[in-house]
Design a protein around this nucleic acid. Structure first.
Length: 337
DNA sequence: GACCGGTCTAATCGCTTGGT
DNA sequence: ACCAAGCGATTAGACCGGTC
């Protein structure tokens, strides 16, 4: 959910579909690697109401500009395909450590409701870019972004390759139309401050999500896509919820709930034809519980120790690329009913 | 034969600008 | 404030080679 300040320089001339893809990738990415795993073109097209060509244009365009690198993932039959998209130089590999260089690198937090809003999505590409810059600048100085009026126009005209008039139009939509920033001119200076809409909902409030939640959802979405399982929002939410419901139960057995939820999803469509698969959260629940019951208990003392140590990072430690169904299935055979 | 991911291409859209 | 030229961005949909 973090976009490093130092990457903003590259974004002044991206197209709108490229900007959307970048924001989308960051919002669903694993912060320790700066990578969104299992990015599926249809999800992007649904999210931003774009045609599929735009996904490819955006992906290749961002790669050509050196902003992302990507890898295509296909199953053996070539019937499903998705991409891992790494935003270059956007990783926080030692997050939580005392390494000051990584810990202190500034970023725009794309978890803010502003960056998911319809207002933001409907902005022009360069307005989106300015929103990121203004967010950075107003945040960095604390008291708002201050810039002499003439210098302000010269700087942004040059960066964006447009005239004063057009920059004024951008400012207008960011302030008056969207209400993202308060913008005023006083004593020959522009002064721009972020408005309250950037504030994330607190825990317990409507719309609250931890940064990790989008990443967890993406893991489920990837498994559903790869198994060609059709789903609606309710079923999806119910399935994601299983991950939280069973996290500690799996942790007590030294197991990663994500890995086994993935297996349970896979098991849930056993016997269903490729084209006749729709999500059944209760069926997945059943399989997940069966897997849990089949796992060996670990000795009490060890369990308590391991659990307290790993609880906090449980969701961070998931490696999504390690899914080997052959291996998982043999595990299941050995451990379940 | 239906459907999928991905590509190709022509048509259209949208943005910016200079002129009014 | 509005208009229209210029041109890059985006779209729709035909198409290709593959699987179900």
């Amino acid at each position: 959910m973090k976009l490093k300040y130092k990457l903003l320089d590259k974004l002044h001339n991206v197209s709108n579909s490229e900007m959307d893809l970048l924001v989308w990738a960051v919002q669903h990415s694993d912060e320790t690697s700066g990578t969104m795993y299992g990015a599926y073109y249809k999800d992007y097209c649904d999210e931003y109401d774009r045609c599929k060509q735009s996904f490819y244009n955006a992906l290749y365009g961002l790669a050509d500009k050196g902003i992302v690198t990507f890898r295509r993932n296909q199953n053996d039959a070539g019937t499903t395909s998705d991409y891992d998209i790494t935003v270059n130089d956007n990783a926080y590999p030692w997050k939580g450590s005392s390494e000051a260089t990584y810990r202190n690198e500034g970023y725009v937090d794309l978890a803010s409701p502003v960056f998911r809003s319809g207002e933001f999505k409907s902005l022009k590409a360069k307005e989106k870019y300015l929103a990121l810059e203004f967010r950075k600048r107003s945040f960095e100085t604390g008291k708002g972004y201050k810039h002499g009026v003439r210098a302000f126009y010269e700087a942004w005209d040059k960066t964006l390759g447009v005239t004063d008039r057009t920059v004024r139009g951008y400012i207008h939509s960011l302030s008056k139309v969207c209400g993202f920033f308060s913008v005023g001119i006083k004593d020959g200076f522009y002064r721009i401050t972020s408005r309250i809409c950037f504030k994330k909902p607190a825990k317990g409030q409507e719309g609250h999500r931890y940064d990790q939640d989008m990443y967890n959802e993406q893991a489920v979405r990837m498994d559903l896509n790869r198994n060609n399982i059709k789903y609606d929002k309710t079923g999806f939410d119910d399935t994601v919820f299983l991950m939280y419901q069973y996290a500690s139960a799996f942790a007590q057995k030294h197991a990663d709930v994500k890995t086994y939820l993935s297996a349970a999803i896979h098991n849930s469509i056993s016997g269903h034809k490729w084209r006749d698969r729709s999500l059944s959260a209760p069926t997945i629940h059943y399989h997940l519980k069966a897997i849990l019951d089949g796992l060996k208990d670990v000795p009490e003392t060890q369990s308590a120790k391991q659990n307290s140590k790993s609880k906090k990072n449980r969701f961070n430690s998931f490696s999504q690329r390690d899914n080997d169904y052959g291996e998982l299935e043999s595990l299941l055979l050995n451990s379940t009913i």
